[in-house]
């Protein structure tokens, strides 16, 4: 388990700074695919940082929602990383990103039906068996819905978690973005998820655009600070769940390290308010 602290997405730009200054951060999270390389600085720095901090391994390329078998080579590469770095947690997305021979490098949406439910559960069973550990499944940020869906997203996720025994990675920003995009109430959406199975929270920033009707269309860009509405939702979530490991994500327009550290500290202060303990 990760500590009930705030953590930060680890960016190569900050490797040296972290090793030199040893900031008081609860954990770091890395995107697994960036470390699926034979050797060199990525492994050098991650190994050093892992000596001092808990680690969350977050996959972005497994394509659990694909209508094709999982890529065994990719599962093997994940197993190698888990063996090498012993992360406290491994998580992936409710989405697909590979099709045929190609990797599309986006977290693409799927309809929620009995068929896709069976497939996602099969895939998660395979992942957990292959890796020998439970995984956390992250709720997606989506921009469209499928008219063929017969289940709500929250029912779909709840059923996947019930059947496979996996945990929930609650991305509060994704919940907010999707709810605005699909005209739902974010608080109600989150309450409909199995929060007792949530072991980690993600917080990130979004970009605001408009759809063809001029209604808001939020993009999960990870390019901005966490929005006020999302912080508000987060404090509500903590009231329901109690202190839970919380990641600050920033992947685009990465600011100086101190700016991210301030966001981490803010999340930590909410965690303390919610009854969490800082060392």
């Amino acid at each position: 388990m990760l500590p009930s602290r705030a953590g930060l997405g680890l960016k190569p730009e900050h490797f040296r700074n972290i090793l030199e200054s040893g900031p008081d951060i609860g954990f770091f999270e890395v995107h697994a695919e960036n470390y699926m390389v034979p050797g060199g600085p990525m492994h050098h720095y991650l190994g050093k940082i892992r000596e001092h901090y808990p680690l969350s391994l977050h996959g972005v390329g497994l394509s659990i929602g694909a209508d094709a078998p999982l890529d065994k080579t990719h599962l093997d590469a994940l197993a190698v990383l888990i063996d090498r770095y012993a992360p406290q947690v491994f998580s992936e997305h409710l989405a697909w990103s590979s099709h045929g021979d190609f990797f599309l490098n986006d977290l693409l949406p799927l309809p929620y039906t009995a068929t896709t439910l069976n497939r996602v559960c099969d895939h998660i069973d395979q992942v957990q068996t292959h890796l020998g550990c439970r995984m956390l499944l992250e709720n997606p940020a989506t921009y469209l819905e499928f008219s063929t869906s017969t289940l709500s997203e929250t029912d779909f996720i709840s059923e996947v978690i019930r059947r496979t025994g996996c945990g929930l990675l609650l991305d509060v920003n994704n919940a907010y973005v999707s709810c605005i995009n699909h005209h739902r109430e974010p608080g109600a959406y989150i309450r409909a998820l199995p929060l007792d199975r949530a072991e980690q929270i993600h917080l990130g920033g979004f970009a605001s655009q408009a759809d063809a009707n001029g209604d808001p269309l939020l993009i999960d860009s990870h390019s901005a600070p966490v929005a006020q509405d999302v912080w508000a939702l987060y404090t509500e979530v903590l009231e329901q769940m109690g202190p839970t490991a919380t990641l600050i994500e920033r992947d685009n327009d990465i600011p100086p390290f101190d700016v991210l550290l301030a966001e981490v500290n803010l999340a930590d202060s909410y965690l303390v308010e919610a009854g969490g303990q800082r060392e």
């Binding site: 490098n105 693409l108 469209l144 063929t148 995009n181 699909h182 759809d211 009707n213």
Partner: peptide
């Protein structure tokens, strides 16, 4: 089979996915 809650043209929303893929790969 793609839809938006307000009945808006799904092409514009689908464009977000197109953009994510093409732009992120060009960035890479």
């Amino acid at each position: 089979g793609l839809r938006a809650w307000n009945g808006s043209d799904p092409n514009q929303r689908f464009a977000v996915y197109r953009n994510n893929i093409v732009v992120s790969l060009i960035d890479a």
